[in-house]
Amino acid sequence: MTLEAERREWHNHASMRTKKTRPPDLTPRRLSFGVVALCAAAWLPAVSQAAGPLADTGPRLAYVDPGSGSFILQALVATLAGAAVAINAYWAKIKRLFGRGTPEEDDDARGNTPGDD
C-alpha cells in the first residue's frame, strides 16, 4: 500500500468519527536539517582537539583564569547558533516549496510563560 493510499484510508476511517483529529504524519520523521548540520559542525572543533584535552582530567593550576576559554568559545557558539537558525529557515522554505511544510511544531513551548519571546 502506498503512503497516499494509507493516508486516504485513514481519512475514510476518521470521517466516521465524530471528533476530527489530525491524520498521522506518515512522512518519515521530520529531520531538522539545521540540527543535523549544527551537530556535524559542532563536532569539528572536538575532533580537532582529539589529540589533546579530550582525555585530560588532571587538576587545575592555581594561577589560571578559567574565563579566557569561555570568552573565546562564545564567538564560535554564536556563529553556529546563527547558522542553525538560518539553515532551519531555508530548510522550512524548501519544504514549503514542495508542499511538505507542516505548521511549525512548537517545540519550545514547554516551560515558557506569558511574556516570553
Binding site: 551537530c39 589560571v64 583564569d65 578559567p66 579566557s68 569561555s70
Partner: peptide, 23 residues
C-alpha cells in the same frame, strides 16, 4: 550538539587557554 559545545568543548577551551597570557 548543545551539550557538546557548551560543556565538552567549553571545558576543553578552558583547559586550552588557561594560563595563556596572550589569550
Amino acid at each position: 550538539p548543545h551539550l557538546l559545545l557548551h560543556i565538552r568543548i567549553h571545558a576543553n577551551y578552558q583547559r586550552r587557554y588557561e594560563g595563556d597570557t596572550d589569550s
